[in-house]
Amino acid sequence: MPSGSSSQRERQYEHIKESAEDRGASTGRAKEMAARTVNKQRSRTGEAHSSGSSRGGSRKSSSSRQGGGSKSSGGGGSRSGATRDELYQEARRKGIEGRSSMNKQQLARALGH
Rank of each mutant, 00 (worst) to 15 (best):
A30E: 03
I96K: 04
E97Y: 03
P2L: 13
S53A: 14
L111C: 06
S72A: 11
S64L: 09
R44N: 09
D22K: 03
A110I: 00
E21Q: 05
A30T: 05
S73A: 12
S61D: 15
R59M: 08
T83A: 05
E14Q: 07
K40W: 05
L87S: 09
G24C: 00
S101I: 05
Y88A: 14
R93E: 15
R84P: 00
G52F: 03
S70A: 13
S58F: 08
K71S: 08
S62Y: 13
A35L: 08
E90G: 09
G112E: 06
G77K: 08
Q66R: 15
G56P: 08
R9K: 09
R55E: 15
E21D: 00
G46E: 10
A30R: 02
R99L: 10
M1A: 09
G56K: 06
S3W: 02
Y13R: 06
Q66H: 12
G81M: 03
T37I: 01
S50H: 05
S78V: 13
E86Q: 12
H15Q: 08
G69K: 14
K104W: 01
S6E: 06
S64H: 15
R93H: 14
G24M: 04
A91M: 13
G24A: 00
G52A: 11
K17Q: 06
A35W: 02
S101D: 10
G81I: 01
H15G: 02
G57L: 11
A91Q: 12
S72Y: 12
E97I: 00
R36G: 02
T27A: 14
G77A: 06
R59T: 10
G28K: 07
S53V: 12
S100W: 06
S100H: 11
E97G: 03
R59E: 12
V38L: 05
G98Q: 08
S5H: 01
S80V: 00
K31G: 04
D22N: 03
E47T: 13
S43Y: 10
E32A: 12
G4C: 02
S61Y: 13
S70Q: 14
R36Y: 01
K17M: 07
G75E: 14
R93G: 00
Y88W: 08
G68F: 11
E14C: 00
K17R: 12
R29G: 07
E97D: 04
A25C: 10
A30L: 01
R99E: 06
S19R: 03
A82S: 15
R65F: 03
E86A: 12
P2Q: 11
N39K: 07
S54T: 14
E86R: 13
R42G: 04
V38M: 02
